Amino acid sequence: HMTFVALYDYVASGETDLSFKKGERLQIVNNTEGDWALAHSLTTGRTGYIPSNYVAPSD
């Protein structure tokens, strides 16, 4: 899985969403939902949907 870094803070709007903080590292599990991606946080160990425009690929 590619690793991504959060560009902004995001507060989950539902139970299936994943909250994260700017700078948090995430792995995209499934990116077939258009503007949303299923992601796993390497920081918190949690998995949920995130807005895909809130993250960018990290080196």
Results as ranks from 00 to 15, higher is better:
Gly45Pro: 01
Ala39Trp: 03
Met2Phe: 12
Tyr8Pro: 00
Ala12Thr: 04
Phe20Thr: 02
Phe20Met: 07
Arg25Thr: 12
Glu33Phe: 14
Gly23Gln: 01
Ser58Asn: 10
Thr16His: 15
Gln27Leu: 15
Thr16Asp: 13
His1Pro: 13
Ile28Pro: 01
Ala6Thr: 07
Gly45Cys: 08
Thr32Glu: 10
Lys21Asp: 05
Asn31Val: 13
Val29Leu: 15
Thr3Gln: 09
His1Asn: 12
Leu42Val: 07
Asp9Phe: 03
Pro57Trp: 13
Gly34Ala: 07
Gln27Lys: 11
Asn53Thr: 10
Thr16Lys: 13
Leu7Ile: 08
Asn31Glu: 10
Phe20Arg: 15
Ile28Leu: 11
Ala39Arg: 00
Asp17Leu: 11
Phe4Ala: 05
Pro51His: 04
Thr44Leu: 03
Arg25Gly: 03
Ser41Met: 02
His40Leu: 14
Ala56Val: 14
Trp36Val: 06
Pro57Gly: 08
Phe20Pro: 00
Phe20Tyr: 03
Trp36Ser: 03
Thr44Pro: 01
Val11Glu: 12
Asp35Ser: 10
Thr43Val: 11
Ala56Met: 11
Tyr49Met: 10
Ala6Val: 11
Tyr8Asn: 06
Thr44Arg: 02
Ala56Leu: 10
Gly45Phe: 05
Val29Gln: 08
Pro57Val: 11
Glu24Trp: 03
Leu38Met: 09
Ala6Leu: 05
Thr43Asn: 08
Pro57Ala: 11
Phe20Gln: 00
Lys22Ile: 06
Gly34Val: 06
Ala56Cys: 12
Ala12Cys: 06
Met2Leu: 12
Gly34Pro: 07
Ala56Ser: 10
Thr32Ser: 11
Ala12Asn: 04
Ser19Phe: 05
Pro51Ser: 03
Glu33His: 13
Thr32Cys: 15
Gly45Glu: 03
Thr44Glu: 03
Val29His: 15
Leu38Tyr: 13
Pro57Thr: 09
His40Trp: 08
Asn30Trp: 14
Ser13Asp: 08
Ser41Ala: 02
Ile50Phe: 02
Asp35Leu: 11
Thr43Pro: 02
Val5Gln: 04
Ile50Gln: 00
Leu18Met: 14
Thr44Asp: 03
Ser19Ala: 07
Lys22Phe: 05
Gly45Met: 05
Ala12Gln: 05
Leu26Ser: 00
Thr47Val: 09
Gly14Asn: 13
Ala37Met: 15
Met2Ser: 09
Val55Cys: 07
Glu24His: 04
Asn53Met: 11
Asp17Trp: 11
Thr3Lys: 05
Val5Glu: 06
Phe4Gly: 03
Val55Leu: 11
Val11Tyr: 10
Leu7Trp: 06
Thr16Arg: 14
Ser58Gln: 13
Arg25His: 11
Phe20Trp: 02
Thr16Met: 13
Met2Cys: 14
Leu18Lys: 02
Ser13Ile: 14
Leu42Phe: 07
Asp59Thr: 11
Arg25Trp: 13
Gly45Arg: 04
Ser13Arg: 13
Gln27Arg: 14
Val55Gly: 05
Asp59Trp: 13
Phe20Gly: 01
Thr16Gln: 13
His1Arg: 11
Asp17Cys: 15
Ser19Lys: 04
Met2Trp: 11
Leu18Val: 07
Thr43Phe: 06
Tyr54Ala: 12
Tyr10Cys: 03
Tyr54Met: 12
Asn53Val: 09
Asp17Arg: 11
Val11Ser: 09
Thr16Val: 08
Val5Gly: 00
Asp9Gly: 04
Val5Ser: 04
Val29Asn: 06
Gly23Lys: 01
Phe4Gln: 03
Gly14Pro: 02
Ala12Lys: 05
Pro57Ser: 09
Leu38Lys: 04
Gln27Asn: 07
Asn31Phe: 15
Tyr10Arg: 04
